[in-house]
Nucleic acid binder design. Structure first.
Lengths: 152, 152
DNA sequence: ATTAATGCAAATGCTTTGCACGTGA
DNA sequence: TCACGTGCAAAGCATTTGCATTAAT
């Protein structure tokens, strides 16, 4: 989805919730759409600042929360309290593989797995709102590099 | 697995790594085996304290890290920097459904999903070390309770 | 006897909050 | 207008760390 379209939807979202369409809020959304990769709250804060925009750290955090709530961004949790965001509107759902060596993130989709999850939830009478599937390990190049010392 | 057996393995693990078998370390392991549920670092600290044992908060954190490293405990990440631990040695791997209403945790196992994950990783040349699959939603009783207001 | 492990308290890092001021509806 | 959103700096919270002390080997 284009940034323009996302922005439009965000404005609709805000209006529907009787929240105000403000400069800082728009700025955060626009920046989120400028990358196709994952980012942290702190990175977002830097982008807004460097982009000449106005939004304090507090507002960045508040807005990221809103964007997740509205389904514009997904928050993916890494260990150690680290949270990464990515824009998801208009993207098909996907899951992640995270490399323990270089921290790179591979995305993958698997419809079969999704279906089995739904089935698993239904069996327990559980109403799934969303899910997270993360594989941790080593990408092929890190595996080459680290394998020897991991086997010790 | 019994606490006694787990303790024995933990001592072996420490010796193999030339780490010392200390009272605080043993105390944390024993407490971890006293529950069959999930717990936080803070809860562990309280248990140790109330159990008359000795282990400062710092040592609890340090020891939990060791136990995860050794495969005695699994750390499951919830949002907001909340980390839960559970003992896994001798338990088959399982995944979680977390209720957004009452925070209860259901466990499930699905061998098909596991197999598909392996397959997915292999396809990308990714060497999976472990994975986390968490479904978030509402357990059947909370769904009854909250559904009306969620539909608003 | 050594040297790692511990406890304490201070430090860290990320995130949230209180409140006076600015601003969108 | 005027309530809501913002910025700032302070507060929170879970976790980590430095260092003197204690205890395992």
């Amino acid at each position: 989805m284009e940034a323009k379209e996302a922005l439009h939807k965000f404005e609709d979202f805000l209006k529907k919730k009787t929240l105000r369409v403000t400069e800082p809020r728009k700025e955060v959304l626009v920046q989120a759409w400028k990358t196709h990769s994952h980012f942290t709250a702190e990175e977002m804060y830097d982008w807004v600042k460097d982009g000449g925009g106005k939004a304090s750290r507090a507002t960045v955090y508040r807005t990221l929360g809103l964007l997740v709530e509205g389904g514009f961004l997904a928050a993916i949790e890494r260990g150690q309290g680290q949270v990464l965001y990515e824009h998801i509107l208009g993207h098909r759902h996907h899951d992640h593989m995270i490399c323990l060596g270089c921290s790179s993130i591979l995305e993958f989709r698997n419809q079969e797995i999704e279906a089995l999850q739904e089935q698993e939830a239904a069996q327990s009478g559980f109403h799934m709102v969303h899910h997270t599937l993360t594989l941790e390990g080593y990408c092929s190049s890190c595996w080459q590099k680290f394998r020897p010392e991991l086997d010790e």
